[in-house]
């Protein structure tokens, strides 16, 4: 499966440009709707996919989130970024999907664990050690509770502040920090024995050192 880096496709947009775009979307301007979708879909999908680990579910959540956002755009508070609001909606839909899926066979895109982060070129420059390290980290992240996983993904992957994460998850900032800190403790607890067996975890593999 082909892969993309959402960080490369996200376009910067000023607050004023965003508000103008939203005004046009409220008038049901198809070009503006399309532009708004294209501006946010990659980042949103990256977050949702990391949460549900299933391509079809992730696309369906993103579609639902956009449709709910369009339908309720009149209630959008422009003091927030549109992306924060959209992520809030998507997070709630994600939780519903995960709840619905609970008790059924987990349908995870396992193929993507095996070569996480690997187009052919990228794989060539990734050492086996770095690949195993990434795989162990993501497998551990998948074991976190949904709020902890969301906090970790928004903090590290989406580079959001604790304040923004609080808005997305609709919880106080202190709770975001609590989720983050507990998540770190759990990840450390799970990863430490694996890493101790394989290598010296104090050393970052060359390919991960940036």
């Amino acid at each position: 499966m082909m892969k993309s880096d959402p960080a490369e496709t996200a376009a910067p947009q000023t607050r004023r440009e965003e508000q103008e775009l939203i005004r046009r979307v409220k008038r049901r301007d198809p070009a503006a709707m399309r532009q708004l979708i294209d501006l946010h879909k990659e980042r949103l999908f990256a977050f949702v996919w990391r949460m549900v680990r299933n391509h079809h579910d992730a696309e369906e959540v993103c579609q639902d989130a956009f449709l709910k956002a369009f339908a309720a755009l009149d209630t959008f508070d422009p003091t927030y970024r549109f992306s924060t609001w959209l992520f809030t909606i998507a997070y709630r839909v994600t939780l519903n999907v995960m709840r619905r899926r609970r008790g059924t066979a987990t349908d995870i895109d396992l193929g993507l664990f095996a070569d996480s982060g690997a187009g052919v070129e990228e794989q060539a420059v990734n050492s086996e050690e770095a690949r195993r390290l990434k795989q162990s980290v993501w497998s551990a992240v998948d074991r976190l509770s949904p709020p902890q996983r969301a906090a970790v993904l928004l903090f590290y992957q989406q580079e959001q502040s604790c304040q923004d994460i609080a808005a997305v998850l609709d919880i106080p900032v202190a709770t975001v920090k609590s989720h983050l800190h507990r998540a770190r403790a759990r990840l450390k607890e799970w990863l430490e024995p694996t890493w101790a067996e394989e290598s010296n975890p104090g050393r970052i593999p060359r390919d991960l050192a940036g």
Partner: peptide, 30 residues
Amino acid sequence: ALLEVMGHVLSTDTVVPELNADFTDRLMAC
């Protein structure tokens, strides 16, 4: 160092599967 390496992986490994090419078209239709 272990926590920093973990954070480093989480921050830099941003590659995910690609959305279907017709995602925007399907969404617009809905």
